[in-house]
């Protein structure tokens, strides 16, 4: 566990990097124009500068925060972000229903409160319901495709 203080220094550093990058990229790639007709670079460049200043302020000031001591939920994060990614990769190739099955199966792994039985039941019902709803709405999406 990092302290709030260290997290803020780290966050400030990331904001400084992002701000510098945005300003640099905008000024080198887009038009600047004149004051009476500013180009597309000016607004992002200004944003970048402000962001870097705020990042610096965040890193150097040590403000009191009522930080909620919450344990970072590693397993749920990995399982759920992973299953969203799998859904995105599968949905175009294999269709909606297989993607939903994988998504729900992955989501269940985020938690250990499901038995095999209830997990399979939930996955099957959700997939069937999604298929049914999309079919009933008349959406022209592929529900399932085999062979890939």
């Amino acid at each position: 566990m990092l302290s709030t203080r260290r997290k803020n220094i780290l966050t400030g550093g990331v904001l400084i990097l992002l701000g510098t990058f945005v300003t640099y990229y905008a000024l080198t790639h887009y038009t600047i124009g004149q004051l009476s007709r500013i180009g597309s670079a000016v607004f992002p460049a200004a944003i970048g500068v402000i962001l870097a200043i705020l990042g610096l302020l965040l890193a150097v000031t040590n403000l009191v925060e009522e930080a909620e001591e919450e344990q970072f939920p590693l397993r749920p994060t990995v399982a759920i972000l992973g299953s969203i990614l799998v859904f995105a990769l599968v949905v175009d190739r294999a269709g909606l229903v297989p993607a939903v099955i994988l998504l729900v199966a992955g989501a269940i792994l985020a938690d250990n409160q499901h038995s095999w039985r209830s997990g399979i039941m939930l996955t099957a019902t959700t997939a069937a319901m999604t298929g049914l709803i999309f079919w009933a709405l008349g959406m022209s999406f592929t529900l399932a495709r085999w062979p890939l």
């Binding site: 969203i84 993607a99 939903v100 938690d111 939930l122 959700t126 999604t130």
Partner: peptide
């Protein structure tokens, strides 16, 4: 535990 997988399906679909 029954709700959150369904919410996630709504999000992605």
């Amino acid at each position: 535990r029954m709700l959150y997988p369904i919410i996630l399906v709504f999000v992605c679909a």
